[in-house]
Computed example of a mutant assay.
Amino acid sequence: MLKSKRKRKEVFDTVLYTLPAIVLVTMMMYIPFIMSGYYSLTKWNGIAKDAEFIGLDNFVMIFSKSKEFSNALIFTGKYTLLFIIFSNVLALFLAVCLTKKFKMANVLRGVFFIPYIMSMTIVGFIWKFIFTQGFARLADITGWGIWDMSWLGDPKLAFYSVVLVGVWQSLGFYIVLYIAGLQAVPADVLEAATVDGATGRQRFFKVTLPLLGPSMTTCIFMSLTNGLKVFDIILALTKGGPGGSTYSVTLQIYKEAFQNNNYGLGSAESIIYFIVVLVVTQVVLKIFSSREVEL
């Protein structure tokens, strides 16, 4: 009898503490997602009382007539690829350096982490000032032509400028994750490799790097999702310009729904992008999880 009461109390407590979270998640995620699916089948400007049902016309338009969405998808793919590569390579390199014992190690860890805790919009405006005013001042001082280039006015340079700012802002977060992974590598395994005659480079590539599998999977997955949802930095830096060359998919959806007042087409684009992100993230997560080495 006592066990039965205790069990009922545990069930009641579980329901009581999880119900608010379930209600909030349902209201903030599931219901809007279902409504977005419905509006993707309609023509609606966000103001009219009733939405006109048009079936799959929005999806047909996206795949057959809309070049803006496909261009935004290509830009986002290229941005995400470079963001993943530079973020992880630089973060791993700096994490290895910062795990060495020297006086300024802890200070440098904090310095690299500071940009990550800043608002991405603020970071974007800071770098916009640097690209337009700071580099012009450096060009006057040094006379080097590289500082006098139109970093945000040239379509090709604007792309790399956005990548640079994105990597700079998030680098500290991945450094922290890699440092945690490096510190978790057993010292006796590295000592055994040294006794066997392995050089420093061999220890890193043959021992340390394979054991960093869980950290690498986490960092690559996080950088993948952050790259795919890039929005704030582009909005602050270029607003999609010049000539629409830096429009990400999220910015394209925002423009279509909230600037063009075409909520039906914007919802259709968001549904398509949701499927793309879901497939890509699951495939990448599966590939890297299968290559992890257990300690």
Score class of each variant (00 low, 15 high):
Leu164Gln: 01
Leu164Met: 15
Leu164His: 04
Leu164Ile: 15
Val165Thr: 07
Val167Ala: 07
Trp168Thr: 01
Trp168Cys: 03
Trp168Val: 03
Gln169Met: 10
Gln169Leu: 00
Ser170Phe: 13
Leu171Tyr: 07
Phe173Ala: 00
Phe173Cys: 00
Tyr174Ala: 09
Tyr174Glu: 09
Ile175Leu: 14
Val176Trp: 00
Val176Tyr: 01
Leu177Thr: 11
Leu177His: 06
Leu177Cys: 04
Tyr178Cys: 03
Ile179Ser: 02
Ile179Cys: 02
Ala184Gly: 13
Val185Ser: 09
Val185Thr: 12
Pro186Lys: 12
Pro186Arg: 13
Ala187Asp: 10
Leu190Val: 15
Leu190Gln: 13
Glu191Phe: 06
Ala192Pro: 06
Ala192Lys: 09
Thr194Met: 13
Val195Met: 13
Gly197Ser: 11
Gly197Ile: 07
Gly197Met: 08
Thr199Tyr: 12
Thr199Glu: 05
Gln202Asn: 07
Phe204Val: 11
Phe204Trp: 07
Phe205Arg: 00
Phe205Ile: 10
Val207Phe: 03
Thr208Arg: 09
Pro210Gly: 02
Leu211Ala: 04
Pro214Ile: 06
Ser215Thr: 13
Thr218Cys: 10
Thr218Arg: 04
Cys219Ile: 05
Ser223Gln: 01
Ser223Asn: 05
Leu224Cys: 01
Thr225Asn: 11
Thr225Met: 15
Asn226Gln: 13
Leu228Ile: 04
Leu228Phe: 14
Lys229Cys: 04
Lys229Gln: 14
Lys229Thr: 14
Val230Trp: 00
Val230Phe: 01
Phe231Asp: 02
Asp232Tyr: 04
Asp232Val: 10
Asp232Gln: 10
Asp232Gly: 06
Ile234Gln: 12
Leu235His: 10
Leu237Met: 12
Leu237Gly: 05
Thr238Lys: 07
Gly241Asp: 12
Gly243Gln: 05
Gly243Thr: 08
Gly244Trp: 05
Gly244Val: 08
Ser245Cys: 07
Ser245Ile: 06
Thr246His: 02
Thr246Lys: 03
Thr250Ala: 13
Leu251Tyr: 15
Leu251Ser: 02
Leu251Pro: 01
Gln252Lys: 14
Ile253Asn: 08
Lys255Asp: 13
Glu256Ile: 11
Glu256Pro: 00
Glu256Leu: 03
Ala257Trp: 11
Phe258Leu: 14
Gln259His: 12
Asn260Gly: 02
Asn260Thr: 11
Asn260Gln: 14
